[in-house]
């Protein structure tokens, strides 16, 4: 396990795959077109778009945790993490919440229409370096979307890892993403899935409460566990605190952050968090490299 000295920002994997996962390097400003194959409603305001390259020969190779800039014609562009299977690069899957003009236009695309894609961009979950370790995935709300590629990656190489646990929390049962898939994962014997919601109707049979309440249930060996976290800021802060209490070292915790982004190339300046650009140094960071900046207000 080498996460201690090589994080995702500078990992070997990134070096060797650089040309593959940064195809945007040649034409960084112009989107490529992908056709909407299917739009699926996940929650009242969240949709999963499956995109296919018009020429099926050309996929879009990406690493779990990376994002694309998606462009709705004439409306604008937004950074959206990739939530599909890295082993099926001919299909590009994004889960998008309608929060503004661009995301609304993206969510309401019809099958057969084209949208623009720039990417993939950014650092990724250190799934390769984590081999031989237990992996704990903690997601809140939409935060499961950028983690799903990592989960696919782990499950298709399941023997290479120790125990794998997923803890997922959302506001209500209606806000849970990928419900059918969660059920399938729960049925697997080589995977433990804990789901919780903040508030639930009486027919909800499982947990109610915040994700941190479920952490003690994970069978964690702090010295052989790598944790991947993505969710609202407050959820990540408390989860990190709990994990540290449980004995996990800071360099075994990875977080995915979110900022305003305009270029994805580390040039527009919008995604700065102190000394880092979330678009190119992140969005996935080893916790100890950004911890000083996460608790500061208005940075």
């Amino acid at each position: 396990m080498k996460t201690g000295d090589r994080g995702p920002e500078t990992g070997n994997m990134e070096m060797s795959l650089d040309a593959l996962i940064h195809p945007a390097a040649a034409q960084p400003m112009a989107p490529r077109q992908f056709l909407v194959q299917n739009v699926r409603r996940e929650t009242p305001d969240t949709f999963t778009l499956t995109l296919a390259r018009p020429n099926p020969e050309e996929g879009l190779i990406f690493a779990p945790g990376q994002f694309n800039m998606l462009y709705a014609f004439g409306v604008g562009e937004a950074p959206i993490s990739i939530s599909g299977d890295p082993d099926r690069p001919h299909l590009l899957v994004h889960t998008i919440r309608e929060v503004g003009n661009v995301t609304r236009a993206l969510c309401h695309q019809k099958p057969g229409r084209a949208i623009g894609v720039r990417g993939p961009f950014g650092a990724f979950w250190p799934v390769a370096e984590a081999q031989g370790n237990d992996v704990l995935v903690v997601a809140g709300g939409l935060g499961l979307a950028p983690l799903r590629p990592a989960i696919y990656y782990l499950l298709s190489r399941r023997a290479a890892y120790g125990s794998v646990e997923i803890i997922y929390g959302a506001r209500t049962p209606q806000d849970l993403l990928y419900r059918r898939e969660l059920e399938r994962w729960r049925g697997r014997f080589d995977l433990r899935v804990h789901v919780t919601v903040d508030a639930a109707p009486s027919d909800w049979k499982t947990n109610v409460g915040v994700v941190t309440a479920l952490l003690p249930r994970a069978r964690l060996d702090p010295f052989h566990t790598v944790a991947f976290l993505c969710g609202p800021g407050v959820m990540m802060r408390f989860t990190v605190r709990e994990l540290l209490n449980l004995g996990l070292k800071e360099d075994r915790i990875f977080v995915s952050l979110e900022r305003h982004m305009k270029c994805g190339l580390g040039m527009c300046g919008h995604c700065q968090l102190g000394p880092v650009f979330v678009c190119k140094d992140g969005p996935v960071f080893r916790y100890d490299r950004v911890k000083d900046w996460l608790d500061r207000r208005e940075v």
Partner: peptide, 25 residues
């Protein structure tokens, strides 16, 4: 060097442009 992107269309909505312009923190 900070800049932003502006996506605009003509009146018909048939032609779209992306402009880059200086932005201010």
């Amino acid at each position: 060097f900070c800049h932003t992107m502006e996506d605009v269309t003509d009146l018909t909505g048939e032609i779209a442009q992306r402009w880059r312009r200086l932005d201010v923190c």
